[in-house]
Design a protein around this nucleic acid. Structure first.
Length: 259
DNA sequence: ATGCCCGGAACGTCCGGA
């Protein structure tokens, strides 16, 4: 029964004790990390190996960076989405682990919108959709998980009116997220918790957002049909957000039947 | 009435985050 989790850690070096503690407590079979904010050679491989986890890393200096951790073998690693015009930002890594094809993705924020950064976000989403289509055609069970930087609907944001012009909530972002769903991918959390508002995965560091529970649900596990058929549990673990030196995101996890 | 940050790079202060 593999347990697969996603967590934007906002610097793996600054968050190392918190991540190691969570691995010990939650024992995921796969942990998909985003915003590791370091190059491959600076990733704390030895510390994770000591905790029993192998790593596959797609890093970048200062910004972005994604990784896959697992106690199981991590096979057939691919770094980056297909990019006809190139892409110098490390936002995607994919591999086969525990019988599933899994990806850790860090979708561009896109603010300010409109503008160049928003255009990059929408282009990146179209590339993700195209790649999801190719994976679907392969027929394998897969999980595309990470920080999507999209609040899918108004119940996923504490103040939808004030956030409607933000790149995370704009109709263009939501429309492309729905396109991904309509290909046949399932938002694991929403599938198992259809009527729960105020279930967030991110709370800003500023203005007391965490103690006031002013959050956003932007970290998602999107499942292929073959994976969705095996989905047995999904939840958001808020505990890490309340710790000292917390990331502004908290882990979201699923359990799938064995593949 | 109102809460205002954090990490990286670098060493002064800005960028990016969402």
């Amino acid at each position: 029964m593999p347990k697969i989790a996603t967590w934007n850690v906002n610097s793996v070096k600054a968050r190392l004790p918190n991540v190691l503690d969570w691995l010990t407590d939650a024992r995921p079979d796969v942990l998909l990390l985003q915003e590791i904010k370091c190059q491959d050679e600076a990733f704390p491989v030895l510390e994770f190996e000591s905790a029993g986890y192998h790593a596959a890393v797609h890093g970048q200096k200062s910004y972005n960076g994604v990784a896959i951790l697992s106690p199981h073998p991590i096979a057939d690693v691919v770094r980056g989405l297909p990019a006809p015009d190139g892409d110098d930002q490390a936002r995607y890594i994919e591999a086969t682990v525990a019988g599933y094809r899994v990806a850790s993705l860090y979708l561009p924020n896109g603010n300010p919108a409109p503008g160049e950064k928003f255009d990059y976000k929408l282009r990146w989403m179209r590339r993700l959709i195209a790649h999801a289509g190719a994976l679907l055609a392969s027929g394998q069970a897969f999980v595309l998980a990470g920080d999507y930087n999209v609040c899918p609907t108004d119940i996923d944001v504490y103040d939808p009116v004030n956030w409607r012009a933000d790149a995370l909530c704009r109709p263009e972002s939501r429309a492309l997220f729905r396109q991904l769903s309509h290909l046949g991918l399932t938002d694991a959390f929403r599938a198992l918790h259809p009527d729960e508002p105020h279930r967030y995965s991110f709370w800003d560091y500023q203005a007391g957002a965490w103690p006031r529970d002013l959050g956003l649900r932007i970290d998602h596990l999107m499942l292929s049909p073959q994976a969705a058929d095996r989905l047995v549990a999904c939840d958001i673990d808020k505990a890490p957000r309340g710790r000292d030196k917390a990331s502004d995101h908290t882990p979201v996890w699923i359990e799938l039947e064995d593949q």
